[in-house]
């Protein structure tokens, strides 16, 4: 179900990029590290037992998705987390959930109404049955 989560083309493309960037465990771990503060490629490469070029490849994906930015310092070029795309991805998911919660709350109310109708219907049938029996 997608209503309430429908987005303009640019926004939808941005979310696609964000979600596909997040789909990789190494990239998620890099983001997790950056939550604690900015870090250089070397610092990021250490805990992953990966080469710097391999880490740089992941960083480029994250940078394209707007999830991180790189500092201008030519030597270090520190990476830092960018909050906006994550916040947007989160908002999208929350809307998806809220959307269904609203639907289901309406359904709860509708079910109460249907149960009441059902109850009245059965009561009428029982009364009719009794009357039929009485006539016999």
């Amino acid at each position: 179900m997608g209503y309430g989560t429908q987005l303009g083309g640019t926004m939808a493309q941005q979310l696609d990029t964000t979600f596909s960037a997040l789909a990789d465990p190494t990239r998620r771990a890099i983001l997790a590290r950056l939550v604690q503060g900015e870090a250089s490629v070397q610092e990021l490469a250490e805990p992953f037992a990966m080469s710097q070029p391999a880490i740089s490849k992941h960083l480029r994906v994250l940078e394209r998705a707007g999830l991180i930015s790189r500092g201008r310092d030519a030597q270090r070029r520190p990476c830092r987390l960018e909050a906006q795309p994550l916040a947007e991805a989160n908002e999208w998911l929350e809307r998806y959930r809220e959307c269904w919660e609203q639907n289901f709350q309406r359904l709860d109310a509708l079910l109460e109404e249907l149960k009441a109708q059902d109850g009245r219907g059965k009561a009428v049938k029982t009364r009719q049955k009794r009357r039929t029996h009485a006539r016999r």
Binding site: L86, A87, A89, L93
Partner: peptide
């Protein structure tokens, strides 16, 4: 794209 990655990364729990 719909669910798993953001759930795992904790994005779904709020920034």
């Amino acid at each position: 794209g719909v669910l798993r990655s953001p759930m795992e990364s904790g994005v779904a729990l709020g920034y």
